[in-house]
């Protein structure tokens, strides 16, 4: 049993310490919002926050998460100060939608560290997240919109 704190909740997880966090979340705890895409930190679909950093859970072992705060897309969705999903809705970003959890988790770190990102900042922050539907232009637009909402306290619609 490994003790993990996920989305502000304590869990005892029946997982071997060498199991990547991704599979503990998905297969052991049933938190399936975090996706499996490549298994080698190439595509970003599995991005979660580990102590607020956008780690790739497919290569992050459960043992590394012990004593740290894990936030998944399910947890981020509960955060009322997060404008990303509102912007994603406004711009109608997703297509197949499979990569979007990871995209949003990555964008959240960008906006926390840089409330007013340029296109170049977005290129830097988001190039670890692949979208085969090519929603990149809309992700870019939604990040700019979310940044604006964040700056203006959510008044932008």
């Amino acid at each position: 049993m490994v003790k993990l704190k996920i989305n502000q909740k304590e869990y005892s997880v029946d997982a071997s310490p060498d199991m990547p966090l991704l599979w503990a979340l998905r297969d052991v705890l049933g938190l399936t919002g975090t996706k499996f895409g490549c298994g080698m930190a190439q595509c970003g679909a599995c991005t979660v926050h580990l102590d607020r950093e956008a780690v790739r859970s497919c290569v992050t072992l459960v043992s590394r998460a012990v004593g740290k705060e894990v936030t998944t897309i399910e947890g981020l969705s509960a955060d009322p100060t997060n404008y990303l999903q509102k912007a994603w809705l406004e711009v109608d970003v997703p297509q197949c939608g499979y990569c979007q959890s990871g995209q949003i988790m990555s964008a959240a770190v960008l906006l926390r560290e840089n409330p007013n990102p340029t296109d170049e900042d977005i290129d830097t922050a988001m190039s670890g997240n692949i979208c085969r539907c090519g929603t990149y232009p809309r992700i870019r637009k939604a990040i700019h919109l979310a940044a604006q909402m964040q700056r203006e306290g959510g008044k932008v619609q």
Partner: peptide, 9 residues
């Protein structure tokens, strides 16, 4: 930088 810090992967 941002979501692309070395130790994320």
């Amino acid at each position: 930088l941002y979501a692309m810090k070395c130790s994320n992967c």
